[in-house]
Write a protein that binds this DNA or RNA. Structure first.
Length: 692
RNA sequence: GCCCGGUUAGCUCAGUCGGUAGAGCACUUGCAUGGUAAGCAAGGGGUCCGCGGUUCGAAUCCGCGACCGGGCUCCA
């Protein structure tokens, strides 16, 4: 008997009946047979599903087959390798810490983890020991075998010894696996699989179990065919962390061991190097080194912005304000502390009070605002509004305070106060689409100016728990969808967006914007939320052309999200080398010797004047200082480079005589330039907000 | 909030067996007046996170607290 499979290039392959993926690879060539770790199979009966199977898995007549190897860039291969690495790690840990309970060990972006319940805590220092034992497991070249068991047998394997008839002491299950491993987490998982199958009305599921040497684990697979395939020098344990069983804080706290693995030593080394680079780009480090901001015990989670941090802050916000004026917004400002009663009316008391701060003034209860909308609504209500006033776009750089749990605070990324670049747009239902479209375009323009052109968009629709009528939701979701469908991105291509069904706010659907930084990480920044509920709750109206009162629609939107967090993203994106228009110190003048002090001061004054508000050039504002410390010129240049100053202007006899400056731009010596020419150059660069 | 780890000069960190502290950078001063990533020298600077305990004696050991870091979304 023979069976026929088709390879990715369309060529047929004839094999003996019962042949495996590995046999198929062997039929193609001995090198491939050695490299094969799994197969991607599409069955003739089910042409839409591609399965990832073990190298030992049998093939069927009519299968389409691709051999998976660790050579080349197959994401499936790396995934299998990492998953097997997590099993090898679990095996090593079980050898070193008998009695450990193992929970789950999946693959994640760039690595893997496995959760354990240890009887004694372990420390990072133990990771090296575990790695050593892993290397032993690898060198033992243990074959990895798959077993498919009925549920009761699987329960006997992982249940406590003697718990079932099958599980007599020292017994083995019919498949030859040990029984009575007493792994409570695995038992729970098997029971869940049973429950899930029952809920779907399906037959009792077949449970797959993998064994390598003495280690047995419940696992979907596939896996490397043997532990040696993991390779040496290709994996590394990176960190330890606590993690709740199934991510629920009501459950037991487990110890999570993180690691990573790559097909080659070189790739692992490159990844570890990239990690180190990211560490150096950490905005907390840059913030301290460049003297931008700091944190203090006296106010955990509350950032302090230094003079240079405020220069950056103001550059961001000046630009933000100018763009809002251009886009037809008015800026407002509302108080930080307001009576608690307002928050009860707005619904925040019911839904958000765990995250709010409260205080008492004259024996009256007050709250510190966690959001700006209720205050903004009071401004809306401060006079009668006509349909002629709409759309009304009110922006606010509102400082909000939120009580985040102490363990989640992280530099500027997660703080307890931040400045939301908020805006609320009040409009008629007819104007909604136009307004949302305007915000989407606005959003892209702002991100592009900061150097982010890779923007991902998500549309989130009505969640299970929500308020408002079906018609209203349909209208709002329809509007958002139409806007996204009709819009083109900065490159003129139609906008791509992902749908997040059921992930909207309880009062309305939303569009979220994620920007991608140079390191490929994405950050959710902007959001547009349509809200029919708040106008209702706080009872705001406008007078229509019919002289009747109508209910406006409200759009909540933020572009940067949090000015502080966006600053952190910028710092990491640019590694501190900010575009000149954002740089807190744009040029530093360096006199060669004391006799050049007057000329250096002249250069500084000329540049500051060129950036001043009454300048004929442009009111760009230029941050220029002189470094006349008694240090060698080499030392001062080095310091300025480390401070990431875009322009270093060296002035000595030659420059003074010629009315020039010796320009060093971002580490590159550009030679002498006439001062007037340099002034034009930097003013243009800042005014046009050129990116480096 | 929870788990693990940490906290020593402004920063980065060393500190052996429990015997009251060190380096580099930074800072101050002096010399050098410099030509594109660290000139030379001297000096100042410490509640070893805080409180309590053990001990003749604690940066070091124990307990409690504060703060910081990693994680608590990736589901066999």
């Amino acid at each position: 008997m023979t069976l026929h499979v088709t390879l990715p290039d369309g060529s047929p392959l004839e094999l003996d009946d019962g042949a495996s993926v590995r046999d198929a690879a062997a039929a193609i060539g001995p090198r491939l047979a050695k490299a094969a770790i799994a197969g991607r199979v599409t069955r003739a009966a089910d042409p839409d599903v591609t399965l990832l199977v073990d190298a030992a898995a049998s093939l069927h007549e009519g299968d389409r087959l691709a051999i998976v190897t660790l050579k080349g860039d197959d994401p499936d291969a790396v995934d299998i390798q990492r998953h097997s690495a997590s099993h090898v790690m679990a095996q090593a840990i079980l050898r070193l810490y008998p009695g450990v309970k193992y929970a789950i060990g999946p693959t994640i972006d760039n690595g893997f983890y496995y959760d354990f319940s240890f009887s004694e805590p372990i420390a990072e220092a133990d990771l090296a020991r575990i790695e050593k034992e892993m290397a032993r497991v690898v060198s033992q070249n243990l074959p990895v075998e798959r077993f498919e068991l009925p549920a009761d047998e699987a329960l006997a394997v992982f249940g406590p010894a003697g718990a079932t008839a099958l599980a007599a002491p020292d017994a083995a299950s019919p498949s030859g696996l040990p029984v009575g491993l007493d792994q409570q987490f695995k038992v729970e998982l098997i029971r869940d699989l049973l429950a899930a199958a029952a809920a779907e009305g399906g037959a009792a599921p077949i449970i797959s179990v993998y064994r390598q040497g003495e280690f047995v684990d419940l696992c979907r697979g596939p896996h490397l065919p043997s532990t040696t395939k993991l390779g040496s020098g290709t994996f590394k344990l990176t960190s330890l962390a606590g993690a709740y069983w199934r991510g629920d804080e009501k459950n037991a706290m487990l110890t999570r061991v993180y690691g990573t693995a790559f097909p080659s030593k070189e790739e692992l080394a490159a990844y570890l190097e990239a990690l180190e680079l990211a560490r150096q780009r950490d905005h907390r480090r840059i913030g301290r080194d460049l003297d931008l901001f700091s944190f203090h015990e006296e106010g955990p989670g509350f950032p302090f912005f230094h003079a240079k941090g405020m220069r950056l802050w103001n550059a961001m916000v000046d630009f933000w304000r100018a763009e809002h004026v251009r886009a037809g917004y008015e800026e407002i400002s509302t108080p930080v502390i307001l009576r608690r009663e307002l928050w009860e009316r707005s619904g925040h008391w019911d839904n958000y009070k765990e995250n709010m701060y409260f205080t008492t003034i004259d024996e009256q209860p007050y709250a510190v605002k966690p959001m700006n909308c209720p205050g903004g609504l009071l401004i809306y209500k401060s006079r009668r509004r006509s349909y002629r006033d709409l759309p009304l776009r009110m922006a606010e750089l509102g400082r909000v305070h939120r009580h985040e749990m102490s363990g989640v605070l992280h530099g500027l990324f997660r703080v307890r106060y931040f400045t939301q670049d908020d805006a609320h747009i009040y409009c008629t239902p007819e104007q909604l689409e136009e307004e949302v479209r305007g915000v989407v375009q606005f959003m892209h323009r702002i991100y592009a100016a900061f150097g982010f052109s890779d923007v991902k968009i998500e549309l989130s629709t009505r969640p299970g728990k929500s308020i408002g009528s079906d018609e209203v939701w349909e209208l709002a979701e329809g509007v958002l969808t139409r806007v996204l469908e009709g819009e083109t991105g900065p490159d003129g291509e139609p906008l791509a967006y992902a749908l997040n069904p059921g992930d909207g706010a309880f009062y309305g659907p939303k569009i979220d914007f994620h920007i991608r930084d140079v390191m490929g990480r994405t950050w959710q920044c902007g959001t547009i939320q349509v809200d029919f509920a708040m106008p209702e709750r706080l009872d705001i109206t406008y007078t229509g052309a019919d002289n009747e009162e109508h209910r406006p629609v409200m759009i909540h939107r933020a572009l940067l999200g949090s000015v502080e967090r966006f600053m952190g993203i910028l710092l990491e994106h640019y590694g501190g080398n900010l575009p000149t228009w954002l740089a807190p110190q744009q040029a530093l003048v360096m006199p060669i010797a004391d006799r050049h002090a007057d000329y250096a001061a002249h250069v500084m004054r000329t540049l500051r004047a060129a950036g001043a508000a009454d300048s004929a050039k442009a009111p760009v504002g230029l941050h220029v200082d002189v470094d006349d410390r008694g240090e060698s010129i080499g030392k001062r240049i080095r310091d300025a480079q480390l401070q990431k100053v875009p322009y270093i202007l060296v002035v000595g006899d030659r420059e003074e005589e010629a009315g020039a400056v010796g320009v060093r731009e971002r580490g590159e010596d550009k030679g002498p330039r006439p001062l007037a020419e340099f002034v034009d150059h930097i003013v243009d660069e800042v005014r046009e907000r050129r990116l480096p």
